[in-house]
C-alpha cells in the first residue's frame, strides 16, 4: 500500500512536469489551434492550464507539513470506493475526517478532489460517477467545517487509472478520490 502512495506522489510530480506538454496535432499535420480567449470560463478548477496536475504536497509551502509526513494521518490521500458506489466507507471517512480537520484549521489551504472509476461500463457514466465520488468527499469535508471555496473538484472517470489491469486486483485501486493539495491562497 505504501508503495502505491509513493508511486502516486511520484506520478503527480511527473504529471506536473509534463503538464505543459504540447497540444495540437503533430508537425506536418494541420494543427488544431486553440483560441484560449474563447474559453470564457477560464480554467475554473483552480489555476491556469498546466499548473493543476500537481499536488500531494509536492508544491512549495508544504515542506515539512503533516501532508508530507508519512507518520501523519494526512499522508494518506486516497479514498477508495465499491463498484458503482459513491458511498465513503469507514476507512474513507476516517481519512477524510483527518483532512477535514486540517483544512478547517487552515482555511487558506486548498484541495482539489479528483474522482475516478474503474474501466467497466460506459465512459461518460463513469465521468459522472467519479464526480459524485468527489462530491461525497466534499460533502463530508464541508459538514466538518471546511469552507466550500477551499475545495475544487474534477472527474477523470475511467481515465488515468492508478493501476493497469482488467480485474478486481487493479479495479479496487482505480475506484478512488484523490485529495490533492493545491497550495495556499
Amino acid at each position: 500500500m505504501k508503495r502505491l502512495f509513493g508511486f502516486l506522489s511520484l506520478a503527480v510530480l511527473a504529471l506536473s512536469l509534463s503538464a505543459c506538454g504540447t497540444m495540437g496535432a503533430k508537425p506536418g499535420h494541420k494543427a488544431a489551434v486553440v483560441d484560449q480567449s474563447t474559453s470564457a470560463q477560464g480554467a475554473g478548477a483552480g489555476g491556469g492550464a498546466g499548473a493543476q496536475a500537481s499536488g500531494a504536497g509536492t508544491e512549495g509551502g508544504f515542506q515539512g507539513s503533516p501532508i508530507n509526513n508519512p507518520a501523519s494521518p494526512l499522508y494518506k490521500k486516497t479514498v477508495y470506493f465499491a463498484f458503482d458506489s459513491s458511498v465513503v466507507n469507514a476507512a474513507g471517512q476516517k481519512l477524510v475526517a483527518a483532512h477535514a480537520k486540517y483544512l478547517a484549521a487552515h482555511p487558506d489551504v486548498h484541495v482539489r478532489l479528483q474522482g475516478y472509476t474503474d474501466e467497466r461500463g460506459s465512459p461518460e457514466y463513469n465521468i459522472a460517477l467519479g464526480w459524485r465520488r468527489a462530491q461525497s468527499v466534499r460533502q463530508l469535508m464541508v459538514v466538518q467545517g471546511v469552507k466550500p471555496d477551499q475545495i475544487s473538484m474534477i472527474s477523470y472517470g475511467e481515465e488515468h487509472p492508478a493501476v493497469l489491469g482488467h480485474d478486481e486486483s487493479a479495479w479496487r485501486y482505480n475506484r478512488r478520490v484523490l485529495i490533492v493539495y493545491t497550495g495556499q491562497k
Binding site: 496535432a25 494541420k30 488544431a32 489551434v33 474559453s39 478548477a45 493543476q52
Partner: peptide, 19 residues
C-alpha cells in the same frame, strides 16, 4: 487539455474549432 473538461466543436476538414 486544460486540466479540466471542456466541450469543443471542430471543423473536421479545416481543423478550426471553438469551445
Amino acid at each position: 487539455e486544460h486540466h479540466r473538461s471542456q466541450i469543443f466543436v471542430q471543423n473536421v476538414a479545416s481543423g478550426a474549432r471553438r469551445v
